[in-house]
Design a protein around this nucleic acid. Structure first.
Lengths: 342, 342
DNA sequence: CTGAAAGCGCTTACAG
DNA sequence: CTGAAAGCGCTTACAG
């Protein structure tokens, strides 16, 4: 009796492209092209190959594909933190979009540090990602060089970039903060403090927006500026609110760079018996889901982070599929949410 | 003049194992073994290989490695949601631990659906992950079969599993909820409602813990049980609290299955002028960071999710490195946080 | 439009 | 303990 057909030394049990080609009676190359949708393949052959693949339950091996083509189906998504809900929503939207395009998300947390971002990128680049999604515009020179050298498409999220060859999806942090500041001025507030925590680039841009709006109105006073390097949180907001009220009794509004701080401020006001907005107005930034339910409901700026994550991922997918496609910058805007606290 | 040394058709510019072997004057196999720390290699050769690798800046190609060994350095981490902060912390702790072990996190969101978990796993398994981290114990038969068939180590997080061959890191959801319920009873509360949102297995286990503690005390009343299929959130908690107070004026405590609900309840109480804990006590579950700052501060159960993520990842890494290692179940416990709301 | 050849950069499996 | 051979499962690059 004849022995079984020769098998590879280390069979995996999965159908391979060669199996599909055999069943479809074409060469592996034609099967490969048909399955990837290359337009050059004869329609009848495409049919046969697809039928064979379906029959065998063929699924391409990503490692083999990556090794041969020098591109994986991974996308590196680098965000500063998972503690700030903002970035969680950004990540979730991006990963949903990437997954539906057949791409896997490789997540990296930079802790707001460009050097750490660079290091993460070096690690991720070993996997030859199809593309990269970055937060903000503050990259090291080496990061830009690595990306260019590997010729890996990249889209940045949150801020508005400029210039050709780069792509960004975001909104103007500065304009958004200025708009909220003007709203407070319109409501008759005269001494509007700004609290900047974390001191990342976006927070500083918001600070600049607040400053320019106050300057424009002739109301800027450096003593109204509170800088706090710690990460924003409800607890920190409560603590800072107490400090500000104690240190500057004349302050009649506090604009926080993030909603969680403002939420904490409202709790502190409740505890201290400081009427909001009666004696002091409170405003936040981002419109996190809880902010509609605080007492009083929080006035804030709604930022389109889910839309940013999605659009950035879509743009990246488009650039992966067509590298010739021109990069672009998309401004997704913001919305003032005026509620009870101002 | 002689032409340059023959180069591969598609050079990548990166140093390869062959380059390292050449410089170290050993065979590629010896270089491979030395770099992976196989104990059989002569110490002097290991030295030479490591020096050569360092000199060339050699970094192994993950795709080639995965293709040849049929194992990638990815770990699939499947969690139900990113909307619930709990899982974000779980993910963050796990990914930090995995990264320091040289493993990449492949994230998947199951939306609390075992069928979706199975589908995600099928996709991830194509990448031949070194291991898998799953949330909870509710897997489909096919999920278990896939894992067994691929011989991929797996550790589940959050709940306490049992039985040999499986590994879990978590705590008893039921015991934790029972402990909080007993605390409320001890404080003299007699009509303690329980609010279960999302209705995922862990929530139902907490419900069971509440029920058994009340039954034990002769205080169980089915009308005190509130089931809500929607996802928990601050807004939902506020809404449910209003409903409960209106529907059951005799209720003197509400125990929510998650802190965000309880936070919303406290805000609703403030708005409605319902004294907490004077007229009604409020308790939560998880001890999310904001809960120490609510008005009044929230009594809750502190759950060790960061420790779970870390320990589960460590256990998985250990099982990846030593497949013979016995699986185990680790109970990381919980802690009652009694604060002002009860 | 299709295919035979070569190769991607590693590791398995086998010899010695 | 070390290495030559073969192969992992694809795609690139080249012919025709």
């Amino acid at each position: 009796m004849k022995s079984a057909a020769p098998r590879s030394v280390r069979a995996t049990g999965r159908a391979t492209l060669a199996d599909v080609a055999r069943v479809a009676e074409v060469s592996p190359m034609t099967a490969s092209r048909a399955l990837r949708g290359e337009p050059t393949v004869d329609a009848a052959l495409v049919q046969r190959v697809q039928a064979a693949a379906a029959k065998l339950g063929y699924l391409p091996d990503p490692a083999a594909r990556a090794l041969a083509s020098r591109r994986s189906t991974h996308v590196a998504v680098l965000i500063p933190s998972l503690t700030n809900q903002l970035f969680v929503e950004l990540l979730e939207a991006a990963q949903r979009t990437l997954r539906s395009a057949g791409l896997q998300t490789l997540i990296g947390i930079t802790h707001y540090d460009p050097a750490e971002e660079e290091q993460l990128l070096r690690e991720q680049l070993l996997h030859r990602p199809a593309g990269v999604l970055l937060t903000g515009l503050e990259q090291t020179r080496a990061t830009r060089r690595l990306l260019a050298a590997e010729d890996t498409p990249c889209v940045t999220m949150m801020e508005m970039g400029s210039g050709p060859g780069t792509a960004s999806v975001g909104f103007s942090q500065e304009a958004a903060a200025a708009a909220m500041t003007r709203h407070l001025l319109q409501r008759g507030r005269r001494r509007i403090a700004f609290v900047a925590a974390q001191l990342d680039p976006r927070t500083l841009q918001r600070l600049a927006g607040w400053r320019s709006a106050l300057t424009e109105a002739g109301r800027f006073d450096a003593r109204l500026e509170w800088r706090e390097p710690a990460a924003s949180s409800v607890g920190l907001g409560a603590q800072l609110f107490e400090q500000i009220v104690a240190a500057s009794p004349a302050v009649d509004a506090v604009f926080f760079c993030n909603d969680d701080l403002a939420q904490g401020a409202l709790l502190a006001a409740l505890r201290l018996g400081v009427p909001v907005p009666g004696r002091i107005a409170v405003a936040g930034f981002n419109d996190l889901p809880e902010s509609a339910h605080t007492v009083p409901p929080l006035s804030t700026v709604r930022t389109p982070r889910a839309a940013i994550g999605q659009r950035a991922a879509e743009l990246l997918v488009a650039r992966i599929r067509d590298p010739a496609r021109a990069a672009q910058h998309q401004d997704l805007g913001f919305e003032l949410m005026v509620r009870g606290s101002s």
